[in-house]
Amino acid sequence: MGGAWLGMAPFTVYVLIFLGLPLYEVIHGAFTSDADQLTLHNFSTIFSSSEYWIPLKNSLILSAWTAGLGAVLGTWLAAAVVATPHGSMLRRVVSSASGVLAYFGGVALAFMLIAAYGRPPGGVLTTWLKDIGIDLYAQGFNISSLFGVGIAYVFFQVPLMVILITPALEGLRPQWQEAAESLGASKLEYARHVAVPVMTPPFLGALLVLFGNAFAAYATVLALVGVTVPLVPAAIEAAINGNVLVNQDRIAFALGVEMILVVSIVMVFYWMVQRRARRWLQ
């Protein structure tokens, strides 16, 4: 048996060094002062100053609405696709495309949107719209803004939702609807009494994942706007590579712990919801 434990060594060592070390730096740094003493001062700073409250608020709101919109549209799209058979072309295209966007999104997506919705004469679509009389930028729209980031997020939240909710939709056995109908229920009654209650936990779970996803995301922001946008990840970067104030590392770490906390809470809720769902759908 000793050999087996030894076999775990590579993995363990690797994780300790390359995950444990940075993590330690962050957590240790967040809870200590410059004089290397345990303190909560860093946290009181980030929770009291509006300089750090605003990014947190923005991040939470952004995550919430992009998750909500993505969840609803994604479920709708997934429901439409699930009805087609597995090997069909539509199915393959949608699942591959969803994978591309949900995964590879980030920078490539950002540039795609800049190319399409950038400020005229840069953006192809906005220029065309301006030519036919609809000047979006004059109305205040800007793809390189917080709102633009939100639009970009919806672009990958929807496919992500499709990926996450499809297994649950497929888990809706046709026998349930047929049984319900044989017992006299209309399609609406079936939906109300069976389909919706069964789908609610997976839907909520996926919604939480979408929220966490948006909250922790940063790549798209970098490509689309840069460090100037008021979101938590940007605040962290500013603190680390900061031009304004040097030695803001501890603030960055405290913000990092704040992010870990938010995501952890989301994951806890997710786990709770999953437990309920798994019980039913044995």
């Binding site: 049984a179 319900a180 044989s182 017992l183 044995q282």
Partner: peptide, 18 residues
Amino acid sequence: ANKRDMGMVFQAYSLFPN
């Protein structure tokens, strides 16, 4: 189907899980 007044028993998985 929902107006036919017939009871149906399927091979499996037909009970509502919730």
